[in-house]
């Protein structure tokens, strides 16, 4: 089993951007079309993280022209060029699937504002 662990460790990125469930993130995803390569930005709310090791994935949800769009990204994918946290969210659960059933203001996640410590 150690061989498998070593192979997985090789595949993993040394450092990944830290973000949490409820954060709004920008995923800069490389798209390869034949010879050319371009970067597409997918911005939305992180509603879930799943699995572990190389298989770790996260789900980003956004509203596109009134339609909800969800994309699953492998966290360690070499095709993720950059990951930017735009806004931190204050949530109390690890899977925000309830957002799917809500529209408008109800589908918002409160921003996380950390109090300064004295």
């Amino acid at each position: 089993m150690d061989i498998i662990k070593a192979i997985e460790a090789e595949q993993m990125k040394d450092s990944v951007e830290e973000f949490r469930i409820g954060d709004t993130v920008q995923v800069h995803f490389k798209i390869i079309e034949g010879q050319t390569e371009r970067i597409q930005v997918f911005e939305g709310l992180v509603i879930a993280k799943k699995n572990s090791g190389v298989r770790k994935t996260f789900v980003v949800r956004k509203m596109s022209y009134g339609v909800g769009v969800e994309r699953v990204f492998p966290l360690h994918s070499p095709r993720i060029d950059k990951l930017v946290v735009v806004r931190k969210g204050r949530v109390r659960r690890s899977k925000l699937y309830y957002i799917r059933d809500r529209v408008g203001k109800a589908a918002k996640v409160q921003e996380l504002i950390k109090k300064k410590r004295h």
Partner: peptide, 21 residues
């Protein structure tokens, strides 16, 4: 057969693989 795992192939796609020693 050592077991199965997943690796990113040359196109960056997560592929299920069997490891053979």
């Amino acid at each position: 057969k050592v077991g199965m795992t997943q690796v990113f192939d040359d196109r960056g796609v997560l592929t299920p693989v069997t490891v053979i020693k």
